[in-house]
């Protein structure tokens, strides 16, 4: 009911136990390739690589991946269309290189999105956030983000349940009623989040919380083969794109 499909996929992915740093290297590498290499054949290769790796070795359900890739499509399509419509003294018209420019934009964006999704569908946030410490993100910030991650599921459950209860009592049967109900819903969830934080503080004090939320990070060792494969693959991808 409140599960986020991408998150669900990350927890059961075949790459779940791979080092988050390894996966970060691969995804960010692919994202940069998508951005920097010429769209043909660079973006196409990046997109294909991301999809093949996700659906193949990482065993992400195709349905989840496909649906998630569709999310930014509306923005990409509308944005690309807007850039190639030309406004001038003579009103609206197509830019001279409209098809190529739009195709280029869509190519970069879709390939980039697929590359980010490869990371998102294979790495739970609770693995990724501790890895940010290596990028010199302060521990306090990582802890705040970790609590955010845990608590957003608690609040999403409240949100959908309260909304369902409101709907049952006709709270969303018209625009007016719906606004009123949404205001109450937001207020209820805000109150709930406060209350949760206060009670959690009580609960954690009993477990000896003094400074910070230190936990033992899961040991997810880096794989030399994976890193070597990543570097070689990205280099090959870049070489092919530049030569072609």
């Amino acid at each position: 009911m409140t599960g986020l499909a991408v998150d669900d996929a990350a927890w059961v992915s075949a790459w779940r136990l791979r080092s988050p740093a390894d996966k970060l290297l691969l995804s960010v590498g692919l994202v940069l390739c998508a951005l920097l290499l010429p769209v043909w054949p660079g973006s196409l290769l990046v997109g294909l690589t991301a999809v093949v790796l996700a659906l193949g070795p990482a065993r992400v359900p195709a349905r989840t991946f496909g649906r998630a890739v569709r999310v930014p499509l509306a923005f990409i399509a509308l944005g690309a269309l807007t850039t190639v419509v030309q406004v001038g003294s003579g009103g609206f018209g197509w830019a001279p290189d409209a098809a190529a420019r739009a195709g280029g934009l869509v190519g970069h964006a879709v390939a980039g999105s697929a590359a980010v999704l490869l990371l998102a569908t294979t790495t739970p946030m609770s693995d990724l956030l501790p890895a940010l410490a290596r990028l010199r993100v302060p521990a306090a910030v990582i802890e705040v983000a970790s609590v955010t991650y845990r608590m957003l599921f608690v609040l999403l459950t409240s949100l959908s349940t309260i909304r369902e209860a409101q709907t049952a009592r006709m709270g969303h049967s018209g625009v007016r009623a719906s606004y009123r109900s949404s205001g109450m819903l937001a207020a209820a969830v805000l109150t709930r989040s406060w209350d949760r934080a206060r009670r959690l503080q009580d609960g954690l004090a009993g477990r000896g919380m003094e400074a910070g939320l230190r936990v033992l990070p899961e040991a997810l060792p880096s794989s030399r083969r994976f890193v070597a494969g990543t570097v070689a693959g990205l280099a090959a991808l870049a070489a092919v794109s530049v030569v072609a």
């Binding site: 409240s158 349940t161 309260i162 369902e164 209860a165 409101q166 009592r169 049967s173 109450m184």
Partner: peptide, 28 residues
């Protein structure tokens, strides 16, 4: 047909008891 869920906190979202009970009838 009305369903009352297990956790009352998911059903009560108004400030006062009377206001909350009036939510459904108001929407009717």
């Amino acid at each position: 047909v009305q369903l009352v869920l297990q956790d009352p906190d998911d059903q009560l979202f108004s400030a006062s008891v009377a206001q909350d009970v009036s939510f459904g009838p108001m929407n009717l």
